[in-house]
Nucleic acid binder design. Sequence first.
DNA 1: TAATCGTGGTA
DNA 2: TTACCAAGATT
Length: 342
Amino acid sequence: MCLSARFWSAAGVRDDAVSELLAWYDRERRDLPWRRTRDPYAILVSEVMLQQTRVEAVIPYYLRFLERFPDVGALASATLDSVYEMWAGLGYYRRARNLQATAQAVVSLGGFPLVLQDLPGVGEYTAAALASIAFGRPAVALDGNALRVWSRYFAYEGAVMSVAARRFFTERVLGLIPADRAGDFTQAVMELGARVCLARQPRCLVCPLQSGCAALARGLTESIPKPSVKARREKVALCALRIFCGDRVLLERRERDPFLAGQWVTPWFFEPFSQVGPDYLARFPGGEPRRVGTVSHGVTFRDLTIEVWEWETSRESCDEEQRWAGLDARLPRLASLVLELA
DNA sequence: TAATCGTGGTA
DNA sequence: TTACCAAGATT
């Protein structure tokens, strides 16, 4: 790096980088629902929903959720079931429980704590995003977008997820944040990662940071950030049960099962029907079980093939302790697939 | 640190 | 069809 020192900060960032970035953001920013509010609660909801989830998928959930729970008090006092219901289909259901626990903590404390990371479901990234976007405090929010942007800008060739990498970026970026635009800075970096500094085929020609980007200068934009080695998807066969009582179907909630935690789903198992069928037939006696077919569904590192069986149980088994849902219930995708199977 | 948790989109 | 992955947190 032999360029004239007066154009570069000690951290290796060009003097004009921040103003170029913010000007680009002012010009190109998408009109997203959570960019129309300064309510910390609403911004928290958006940040939690956006964890590992695409913007387009979040928008309808965000709007419905805020309509149902318009403020932190409404969410804190809601039933957990109603919170799950609003989350059904969005995935990573632990987020729903943690979000309500956070709402209850905020009500109990009389406001957001100074250390946002103390809140359930609020990790390093979300705490920094909330601090900057909702409270205007300088904080470096390192999500997948920001890690890609900064690893390329500094040509960081190590593993970007490591503690060392995050410290490296935080040290260099924290001082760049304009005091009056901390939230815009955070969102501008992420917007840049989402729309310009793409994982594959980044659009460097239109990038507001192109003149200072070390990876671009050295032709490393394809090899940085270094791709992580991911486990192969494992193929898993399992079975699910559709047990009908008239026009309603049995749903269960297995609290202790980390998978689909707390969600209402049709009974399903990692074992074949021959192992679990007799047990359930004894509990819900009725007609002969019938193999309906199979459905496929990918979940993180597994490809599930689900063999679906169904039967009609006798009326006296339809007690009040079980939940018998109508077919129009809002359910996780996996349960919907099982019920939709013709 | 590494595994785990859903879903839907894309190349 | 397959692999990858998108505003991560938790254990």
